[in-house]
Design a protein around this nucleic acid. Structure first.
Lengths: 344, 344
DNA sequence: TTGTAAGCGTTATCAT
DNA sequence: ATGATAACGCTTACAA
């Protein structure tokens, strides 16, 4: 009843040859033409398909790469995924995705998975970099590329954004258009991006010779509600609302827009708004959102490239001491209506 | 130099026991306590991790499930993915994603992958259902769940949306708010959703006793540009612009909003707009977009559930003749500002 | 060109 | 409770 799955042996017997010959046929190795034909005919007839698991056991390769991020639904990670997938696919790798919820424990589990031979390599974008995670990274059983920042000396290839420059671009733009009371709505300070953007904001303000008014700084999550809430709080500032809002990502900015609209304030006339990440949401919102592109797509592409280098290279695929590569992707300010009005 | 990867044999020797005992320890089978301790100690010391590939070869399971869609970046598929992933994960399955570009050839390749034992099961959402694809579905070497519609009798579990009812809900809503000249901007008619929505539009209009004016029907891609372009064309209708636009998905609707805005028409006062799929974009756009929720998230969840049933069941996991299950997810109209103005 | 046979790292069936 | 040993399906010397 249950159709037995044909193996190389089944075919060998049916075609009256050895299993070695069958294997050769399927690996494009030299075989007599008549043999090849017979084997292929039987394979076709019996519906034979080579078993990739058995092949993996011999070759010690899975032809899979894992991609681990906090939440694959986040547009930033999605942008990376969209770039990574085709690049790896072109080299014959399938993609296994992990949504870790940002839990270092789960991320470490994924790293362990490399030892179990779940995948030949990993692209990971940890949102919280703990010592345990760094340890696991250093011990990874297969090539790993981190999208994000790791402490200097960490023996892992990594592709990072330049939040500092990005924030500076945004601040300069806001100052250029005459804004002076700039509010800042950020995500959690115990995350890498949150901490980075906070520092960058403060440095940037200092550079511009502007003091930071803590009453104009709000910290929450990287979520829309945080933007709405943060904007509400900053609008209630005793000296009146700020004339610009720098938001640590686009979702926060959208939330801020909601609040501003509800408060009857005009964007950008009364308050200019800048987001970060330049996700597809920025182009859709109304007014369209000026945003700092931190190059998610490019970071994804570069990460895939770095990983492929290691994967293609000879076995010593882990970065030899000091050979870890760091790529930094330059940010770019995408100016839209939320700061300049003008175009729709 | 190259740290040799320890195997069960390495540990057995180090601990002075047989490989069988090591295996038992790692599978929670009865072993003397002292033995267990010794094995675990050596495993820890040598950094032993069980090889999942070897395990798969024996067990004939990969603990992986594949998810194949046209473009994983499409919010609709993404919504499915977000639901599917945790459900499968809870049962210990990893997720392999495939973006097929809607090419039936690639989809068939993924189906073949099941025979190669790349995955234990598959959730697939084909956008074009060709005879070849149906053939491959019927022959799949492992359980498959289709998200979408398949011809009656196809021996595959499937979870479908109800476009017909969805379109009807939208039409009724537009008629309810007094619209009479309803335009329709659709995606390609050679895709399942495109064809379905076209038929539903015509039926719905007929039901409502309204003739279909072909000058108010536009067909393009499921893209924003199609919406912009379609709206432009319909606005130029000799009898003047329509007073409502039904768009076959949210992207199209956003494109239409662009055009309407550029033309100085008010939404919804001059033209009401309805999208479909109720993606996150609908809530972000301005005005926020009334949209027909076709239950992407729920379809994903249900599909994962159906697949798990088969995966957990005894080997005869393919639907026995006639036992294929079909689940239909009810649509729901989500009313927002693009038809009623009012709220924000 | 082809076949034999030895693994790849597990699990599982026997004995013991 | 433990140990040999035979699979699992394939690739790959080594022989013939």
């Amino acid at each position: 009843m249950a159709k037995p799955v044909p193996t190389i042996t089944t075919i060998a017997e049916a075609a009256g040859v050895s299993i070695a010959s069958v294997s050769r046929v399927f690996n494009g190795q030299p075989v007599r033409d008549s043999t090849r034909r017979r084997v292929l005919a039987e394979a076709e007839r019996l519906g034979y398909v080579p078993n990739a698991v058995a092949r993996s056991l011999k070759s010690n390769r899975t032809d899979q790469v894992a991609f681990a991020v906090e939440d694959i639904g986040n547009p930033v990670y999605l942008a990376m995924l969209r770039e990574i997938q085709p690049v790896l696919r072109a080299d014959g790798f399938r993609l296994v995705v992990h949504s870790t919820g940002g839990d270092p424990g789960e991320e470490i589990e994924v790293l362990r998975g490399l030892g179990r031979r779940h995948a030949d390599g990993l692209v990971i974008s940890p949102i919280r970099v703990t010592p345990d995670l760094l340890g696991a990274l250093a011990q990874a059983a297969a090539p790993v590329v981190v999208i994000g920042s790791v402490p200097p000396g960490t023996p892992v290839d990594n592709v990072r954004a330049d939040s500092r420059t990005g924030v500076r671009l945004a601040l300069r733009h806001l100052l250029d258009i005459g804004r002076r009371r700039i509010g800042f709505v950020n995500g959690p300070l115990d995350t890498v991006p949150g901490e980075r953007r906070d520092a960058a904001f403060r440095d940037g303000m200092a550079e511009a010779g502007r003091p930071v008014d803590e009453g104009l700084v709000h910290v929450g999550g990287f979520r829309r509600e945080t933007g709405a809430e943060g904007a509400r709080r900053l609008l209630a500032h005793p000296h009146g609302p700020p004339d610009a809002l720098l938001c640590a990502n686009d979702l926060i900015a959208l939330g801020a827009l909601d609040t501003l609209r509800a408060a009857g304030l005009r964007v950008p006339d009364d308050v200019a708004v800048v987001g970060m990440d330049d996700t597809e949401l920025a182009a859709v919102s109304w007014p369209t959102l000026t945003s700092v592109c931190l190059g998610s797509a490019e970071r994804g592409r570069r990460a895939a490239g770095l990983l492929l280098d290691r994967l293609r290279g000879a076995p010593p695929a882990a970065p030899a001491a000091g050979s870890a590569r760091t790529v930094t992707v330059a940010p770019r300010l995408v100016v839209r209506a939320s700061t300049t009005g003008g175009d729709q």
